[in-house]
């Protein structure tokens, strides 16, 4: 029983840190209305940059910030491909992601880079407060996530933020209101990937190593967090709650994974589970609407027919 509790605690901590990545995916997927495949690459870029900096002796907080900048650059490239060169968003993301695989290997010099005995944010906190490693990552995660949500809430309420939302909602309208939609798209994709890399850096510090494959499937995990959040909270609520729901979705996703692993599922099968989870969550609302319509028809027409 304590084993289960411990693994749940770990799952919650992981869910929170990965939740920052999901918030990034939300910006592109829901606000901008494009599926940005860059994420799988930029997540690992964040991890790689952070690991290299930390191993090189840099302050772990500074390393996270640098990782974030690297993520923004990844987003900038995808944004440029989409807007300036009019490459379809999905393909643009895939191109950057593939390119980043090689770049990430170059950054680390190998495919896996352990942090060894170097300082991490979590270690410092746990030494400072006497909390266990898992508890420390929980505390740091919660604080960081709150900060990120507050900043995002503020940003999307500003003039530029509103222009980004309008771009995603109705690009022609935004354009007619003198919004340079190329710029707004690039800014949004940069912020999104900055958050993704930020999350990748924290994950690296929490697990103690960066791996070139650590971002594989990240986009699906991000989508899973968003749709789970929507299923739990509905998608018509205020923006703050909306952002919170994504982090909660990310936590729930990790808890589900922890439980199925304890029930004896192979780690190799996790990706399939994630894909099915997202597929079903996206399909369900559509199926339910259709079914409701058919039932309504049967109810109304059936009566008159008889």
């Amino acid at each position: 029983m304590t084993g289960l509790l411990l693994s749940l605690q770990g799952a919650v901590a992981q869910g929170i840190i990965w939740g920052i990545m999901a918030l990034g995916v939300y910006i592109t997927f829901r606000i901008l209305d494009i599926a940005d495949m860059t994420v799988d690459g930029s997540f690992a870029t964040g991890g790689a940059v952070c690991a290299v900096c930390i191993v090189g002796g840099m302050n772990p907080i500074l390393a996270v910030l640098l990782a974030m900048v690297a993520g923004c650059i990844c987003g900038f490239i995808t944004g440029l491909l989409i807007t300036k060169f009019e490459i379809p968003a999905i393909l643009a993301g895939i191109l950057t992601q593939i390119g980043l695989y090689s770049i990430n290997l170059r950054i680390m010099g190998r495919s896996n880079l352990p942090l060894m005995q170097s300082d991490t944010v979590f270690k410092s906190i746990s030494e400072l407060t006497g909390l266990s490693a898992a508890q420390a990552s929980l505390v740091v995660g919660v604080l960081v996530v709150i900060l990120v949500i507050v900043v995002l809430y503020w940003f999307f309420g500003t003039e530029i933020g509103s222009a980004i939302r309008a771009t995603g909602n109705n690009e022609r309208m935004a354009s007619a209101l003198s919004v340079n939609t190329k710029t707004t798209k690039i800014i949004a994709i940069m912020i999104a990937n900055g958050l993704v890399a930020f999350s990748g850096a924290l994950v690296t510090q929490s697990q103690g190593y960066a791996d070139v494959k650590m971002g594989v499937g990240a986009i699906v995990i991000g989508l899973a967090s968003i749709v789970i959040g929507e299923v739990l909270f509905g998608n018509k609520r205020g923006f703050k709650l909306r952002l919170t729901s994504i982090v909660v979705g990310s936590i729930v996703y990790r808890v589900i994974i922890a439980i199925v692993l304890r029930m004896g599922m192979q780690t190799d099968d996790l990706k399939l589970l994630s894909a099915i989870l997202v597929g079903v969550s996206l399909a369900l609302p559509v199926m339910m609407t259709k079914r409701k319509q058919v039932n309504l028809y049967k109810k109304l027409t059936g009566k008159e027919g008889k």
Binding site: G157, T158, E159, I160, G161, S162, A163, V179
Partner: peptide, 9 residues
């Protein structure tokens, strides 16, 4: 027609 910045929307 106006510059958009970080003021409230």
């Amino acid at each position: 027609g106006k510059k958009r910045g970080l003021r409230w929307g």
